[in-house]
Design a protein around this nucleic acid. Sequence first.
DNA 1: GCGACAG
DNA 2: ATCTTGTCGC
Length: 229
Amino acid sequence: MINTASLRAEQSDKARLIVRDDQLGFTEPDWIAGADVGFEQDGTITRAAIAILSYPGLDLVEYQIARVPTNIPYIPGLLSFRECPALLAAWQKLTIKPQLLFVDGQGIAHPRRLGVASHFGLLADVPAIGVAKSRLCGQHRPLTEAPGDLAELTDKNEFLGWVWNSKARCKPLYISVGHRISPDSALTWVKRCMRGYRLPEPTRWADAIASRRPAFLRWLAEHPEKSID
DNA sequence: GCGACAG
DNA sequence: ATCTTGTCGC
């Protein structure tokens, strides 16, 4: 069994190291990446994928996949301990290191302010943004139906991030600081990576690769030379 | 004690 | 997250 109390203590400890201001080191990045994980065989294997996209073209130029045994079960609030090992393995395989990374999950919009996007951003020492598809904690004004509607996500009087209607008739995105970036920049860069879908391109590709979606399999068929594993 | 709860 | 067909709406 795992000691959840010590893991929570570790989060509170590391949360103090998260940088909530811009340390981007670029005006226009060359590469922006997306990171996500999927599971194989009843969840016994965690498959992490990191997709490197060109900017501003947003074309998939590289991807790496890492498969590692799943050690920790899914426990709300402790997701990073389940996913970071695999994500780090994929990260180390990269030929191109992105200047900015979108992680599927919360950044500081977390009970102890260390969601997977912040935790991984800290471990990899890379500017990171948390792009989640649902809420973990915090409160916000009900959004309208209007695409582009934006609300602040707050908890205990503390600003955590944004709730944003990225596309009409779709559930909103929860965007928060991961590491080394400001809340405003996080929102700006997510917006700059949208291409008409609910999810920004880096996240969309990472999800397609990690979960072997048809879109990725079709891309592979058209780019046999870029096939790995 | 009860309800909520990223992926 | 994952298992899965059809179906409703733009």
